[in-house]
């Protein structure tokens, strides 16, 4: 009689043990369609490993959009507009002064830049004034470095002006 009870107890234990592996989530369940974005400046982290849907950015090799499960790569960014499409469906736009984007395995994206601000923080008038100034220097008879720096400024300002329109 007692041996029968032990046998029945063993029978009752087993179904629970079998059920557990069935509840375990596989890779297919875990893989999400979101990408973890970290957008960091030396003085501030705008995004800290936050789930977003898509990030569009101006790489030196051309405009690129990054979704989840993107191939790992390192891209130098041009000074320009980075668009972040968030989980809620809304999108945010930041103008970055140039930096690097690193797409890491496991749907992680790290963007590093020196300066980055939302578009509404810029003044169209300041941009226009600076373009005039930089054009004067770029076309002037300064040193090779001064002209090169003015051309960098022009590149940034023209990108900024196009983004502000």
């Amino acid at each position: 009689m007692s041996s029968l009870r032990i046998a029945r107890a063993a029978l009752q234990v087993r179904p629970a043990a079998i059920a557990r592996p069935l509840q375990r989530r596989g890779y297919a369940d875990v893989a999400s369609d979101k990408i973890k974005l970290s957008l960091a400046l030396p003085h501030q982290a705008i995004y800290k490993s936050q789930d977003v849907v898509q990030v569009n950015m101006p790489a030196e090799t051309g405009e690129m959009g990054v979704l989840a499960n993107h191939v790992p790569s390192i891209e130098q960014l041009k000074p320009g507009l980075v668009e972040v499409i968030e989980e809620s469906g809304g999108s945010k736009q930041f103008f970055l002064s140039g930096g690097f984007a690193v797409v890491q395995p496991g749907s992680q994206l790290s963007i590093n830049a020196v300066e980055g601000f939302p578009l509404e923080d810029f003044s169209a008038e300041a941009v226009r004034n600076q373009i005039a100034e930089a054009q004067k220097i770029a076309g002037g008879s300064g040193s090779e470095q001064d002209i090169a720096e003015a051309k960098i400024e022009l590149e940034v300002l023209e990108s900024l002006q196009a983004a502000l329109k």
Binding site: P79, G98, V114, F122, A126, V156
Partner: peptide, 14 residues
């Protein structure tokens, strides 16, 4: 290059 670009971005702010 990147410091010149950042300088001009800062100057363009409100």
């Amino acid at each position: 290059y990147v410091s010149v670009a950042s300088r001009v971005v800062r100057r363009s702010l409100k």
